[in-house]
Every structure is written in structure tokens, then in C-alpha cells.
């Protein structure tokens, strides 16, 4: 399991390792994979911006819960970015090998976390000390 993860991580940085896998797919598939990667990077950047915004605009909230929520969003953004390159590399390799694309739990995890964060922010706005 650990070895497989290491191999996947090596794919992020080594074009030679990627080229050693199967053969190049139709360029349109690669570009679609690249756009998916960029969409995930934008999601990551949105989470980072959300974390900064929570700290700057949710000033009715006490210092500690505000910082915890902001840092959680920033950490989520970083995690999302790492996952973006990881998933891109795994999809690109699967396409080169002619295998099915890898399934992932991450979108479900992100959906639940986003819903939770939204509820927390809404609760902070409604029940916050300044209201």
C-alpha cells in the first residue's frame, strides 16, 4: 500500500515515469484531464480564499472559533491541491494504460465538509456574539 502511494507520488514529478506507462492517449483526453485538474486547483484556491475571508469578514465571531474555522478551510485548500495532482497523475496513467479511470471518495468527502463548514458559518452569523 505504502509502495503504491510512493509510485503514484513519483508520477507527479517524473515525466519519464509517466512516458514509460503505456502509450500517449488522444490529446483531447489529456486536455480534458488537465482541465479537470485546473478545476480542482480552482476549488483549492476557493477554499484558501474562503479561509482568509472567514478570518477577515466573520469578525462577530470569537477569536478561537474563527481561527479554527479559517485554518480548517486553508488546510482543506492545501489538501485539495495535493489531491488534484494525485488524481491527475492517476487518471493520466490509467488513460495511457487503457484502464478504467480511478474511482475516488474525495468528492463525497469534500461535499460533506463544505456542507459542514457552511452550516458552521451560518450558525456563527445567526447566533454569533454580536447579533
Amino acid at each position: 500500500m505504502g509502495g503504491r502511494l510512493r509510485q503514484d507520488v513519483m508520477l507527479w514529478v517524473s515525466p519519464r515515469r509517466m512516458e514509460a506507462e503505456g502509450s500517449a492517449p488522444d490529446f483531447r483526453f489529456s486536455l480534458a484531464n488537465e482541465r479537470t485538474f485546473l478545476a480542482w486547483i480552482r476549488t483549492a484556491l476557493a477554499l484558501v480564499a474562503g479561509g482568509l475571508a472567514v478570518d477577515q469578514f466573520l469578525t462577530g465571531l470569537a477569536h478561537l472559533p474563527r481561527t479554527v474555522l479559517a485554518v480548517a478551510l486553508l488546510a482543506g485548500g492545501a489538501l485539495c491541491a495535493v489531491r488534484a495532482i494525485h488524481h491527475w497523475a492517476r487518471c493520466e496513467r490509467a488513460m495511457r494504460r487503457g484502464e478504467p479511470l480511478p474511482a475516488s471518495h474525495f468528492p463525497a468527502l469534500l461535499a460533506v465538509s463544505t456542507a459542514l463548514a457552511s452550516l458552521l458559518v451560518a450558525a456563527a452569523l445567526v447566533f454569533g456574539p454580536d447579533r
Binding site: L11, W12, V13, P15, M18, I85, A89, E92
Partner: peptide, 9 residues
């Protein structure tokens, strides 16, 4: 051609 992995990293 496809993007290079290092570029995206």
C-alpha cells in the same frame, strides 16, 4: 501534447 507532471506539480 499533454502537460508535464512537474509543470502541474
Amino acid at each position: 501534447v499533454a502537460a508535464r507532471p512537474r509543470h502541474l506539480a
